[in-house]
Nucleic acid binder design. Structure first.
Lengths: 155, 155
DNA sequence: TTCCTTGCAAACGATTTGCATTGGA
DNA sequence: TCCAATGCAAATCGTTTGCAAGGAA
């Protein structure tokens, strides 16, 4: 993972990024970032509320998530269940992709070796250009069945 | 696109697939398939209702979409806006990927040349296996700004 | 006749918003 | 002091479901 290091550093970067926009980095917001940076993949609002110490009222939680989204601190995804999942933006974690379990919906981060990453980048650039798009990024999702579901026989 | 051909053939395949499960291919359902197969990418329920001739009540529309999903006739996606979008499954349209406009949310299909597709397949297989997943498929999304938004200056 | 399908209206659940209150710089 | 942040409750909105009526085999 090519991202920045330990927790403290992330809080510092987030603090600075918010400060640039005149937004305070409060205890509630810090709790959200802590919860999200401990996760190994995108997490739902409910999961974050659960993981955070002390309880975050839903309204505040969603407001924090919205602000983090607008300031480019985190990225929002939607699994096939339609529930939003959030994770730190790539300038904080490094570029990576996801494996998705089609049985239970779990999503986890995966790192991609440089050679493969270069190949992906080239493919995406060429395809996007062909469609008349100015390409900014690419997302690869590997779909499969996770170890747990394989054992349980869910599919 | 490696999929099957004209409209009539698709209706026929859908009809057969439903019949296997003892499900009728009614006029309403046929209208949904017609609307969805005229689209050039995944479409929302609202867009489909709009595109279909005559109006489809929401409940029936969603029930049709659910049935098509369960029978593997169409695939459901969620954009970053959290609204579900539907498209015909790949055994009906051929394997393909998507370009997504980060400004307006539009999603369009793109074909991928064989060489690139093989590369993607290999990368996905290796990454998934490494994460302990039984890999079933892969999804590549090219993110960028579409021609329309580029002109409008939306981003 | 027997099920499947339809359509209306009500229910759901994730997310958002109004508004009065609290708190930090 | 002043404006951003908070938290409760109410509102939204895409989607689902209960139920009675309609239709095909």
């Amino acid at each position: 993972m090519a991202g920045v290091g330990p927790t403290a550093e992330i809080h510092d970067l987030v603090h600075r990024r918010l400060h640039e926009s005149g937004i305070r980095y409060t205890g509630g917001r810090r709790a959200v970032v802590t919860a999200i940076q401990m996760a190994t993949g995108p997490r739902t609002a409910a999961e974050l509320a659960n993981a955070a110490t002390g309880d975050l009222p839903v309204s505040s939680l969603y407001r924090s998530l919205a602000i983090f989204g607008e300031t480019g601190i985190l990225k929002k995804h939607h699994g096939s269940d339609g529930i939003a999942r959030y994770e730190l933006a790539e300038w904080l974690t490094g570029h990576h992709h996801h494996v998705v379990c089609v049985a239970c919906g779990a999503i986890e981060d995966i790192d991609v070796p440089d050679a493969a990453e270069r190949a992906l980048h080239d493919i995406a650039s060429s395809l996007g250009a062909q469609a008349g798009f100015r390409v900014l990024d690419h997302v690869l999702e590997v779909e499969g069945v996770c170890l747990g579901c394989e054992v349980t026989g869910d599919r």
